[in-house]
Amino acid sequence: MPERYLRQSALAHLGLESRAVDDPGDAGLVLCERAHLGKVGLRGDAGDKGFLDAVAKELGFALPLRPNTVAAGEDVTAFWLGPNEWLLAVIPYEGTPLAEDLDKALTGLHAGATVLTDSRTVIGVSGPAARDVLAKGCPLDLHPSAFPSGSCAQSLLAKADVLIYLHEDGGRFDLYVPRSYADYLWRWLEDAGAEYGVAVSGD
């Protein structure tokens, strides 16, 4: 295996680590790159019990079947993306073994797992102004009554496709963004947060 340090996150060029602070002070918006999540795209028929069972057995928990919901195990979080599509976020970020295991488990079924670790990066958005900043570019209603903690949704943020996930504790949004848009989206977020103050935190 190549050295881990050779692997660069989508926002590595911004030198975010050197900007990261422990205490964001009165910044309304706190941003970070969560560079070390593995991602696996999973396709299969939600109506196929065999598929669901096989995946549940492999993951240790059942896939979320309700729209815009999330299910999680210890190291894997599964996001509902559509009636036959899920994204699995994996700790640590080498998603390959999980994809291979899933592929094996799904042999014979019309289903497939694809490693997408490098396709997207994750930008964490928190702070008291997080919702206000996201509202500047996202048409979703992110009010707690409409988008409770633990929800996910695919939508637009400014001109980038994003998967938005609000953590169970309600404290942070994770934005899964296509890698090539990450630099744009980061700049957009800093611009949108300017009126509230922006701080960078570690992952």
């Binding site: 729209p67 815009n68 559509g82 048409p139 979703l140 949704a153 695919q154 939508s155 637009l156």
Partner: peptide, 11 residues
Amino acid sequence: PFCGPRAEVEF
């Protein structure tokens, strides 16, 4: 029919 009500710009 899958995700619920969304704004036109998503479609």
